[in-house]
C-alpha cells in the first residue's frame, strides 16, 4: 500500500452533511442569550460614558484656576527676556559698588595735612 492512498485525503464521514446544515442553521437563529445582548451592551456603554464624564468633571474642578490668558506649552520669549534683564540689573547692582573705587581712609587726608604743617611734626 502506497503512502499516497486516496483514502488518506478523504474527510471522515462521522458527521453527515445534513447534521452540519442543521447545526449551522441553529447557529444563525437568535436565541434567548442573543435577545438582550444589544440592550445590555448599550446600558453598559452609557454607564461607562457617565463614569468617564464624572471623572473628567472632578479633574477640572481640582485643577487650578484658568489663567486670564492662554499659556502655550512652550515658554514665551518675553519671559526669557525679562529673566535676562532681571539678571543683568541684579548683576549691575551687585558689581557696581565693587567697580566704584572705595573711599580712601582718613589717613590719606591727614597725610596731606601733615605735609602742609611743616617739617618735624
Amino acid at each position: 500500500m502506497s503512502q499516497f492512498e486516496p483514502d488518506m485525503f478523504e474527510p471522515q464521514r462521522d458527521v453527515s452533511d445534513a447534521e452540519l446544515d442543521a447545526l449551522f442553521a441553529q447557529a444563525r437563529e437568535p436565541n434567548e442569550a442573543d435577545a438582550g445582548a444589544a440592550e445590555r451592551f448599550l446600558v453598559g456603554h452609557r454607564a461607562r460614558l457617565t463614569q468617564l464624564q464624572a471623572i473628567q468633571a472632578q479633574a477640572v474642578a481640582a485643577s487650578p484656576a484658568r489663567p486670564l490668558w492662554a499659556t502655550p506649552n512652550k515658554p514665551a520669549t518675553w519671559i526669557a527676556a525679562a529673566l535676562a534683564s532681571a539678571a543683568v540689573i541684579a548683576g549691575v547692582g551687585v558689581l557696581r559698588p565693587a567697580l566704584m573705587p572705595a573711599d580712601l581712609p582718613a589717613s590719606a587726608a591727614y597725610a596731606v595735612y601733615q605735609d602742609a604743617l611743616g617739617e618735624g611734626w
Partner: peptide, 17 residues
C-alpha cells in the same frame, strides 16, 4: 594751615576731614 585736595576718589569723614 588747611589742606584743600581735589582728588578722583573720596575720603572717609573723620575729625578735621
Amino acid at each position: 594751615v588747611l589742606a584743600l585736595i581735589v582728588a578722583p576718589r573720596n575720603v572717609r569723614p573723620a575729625v578735621g576731614v
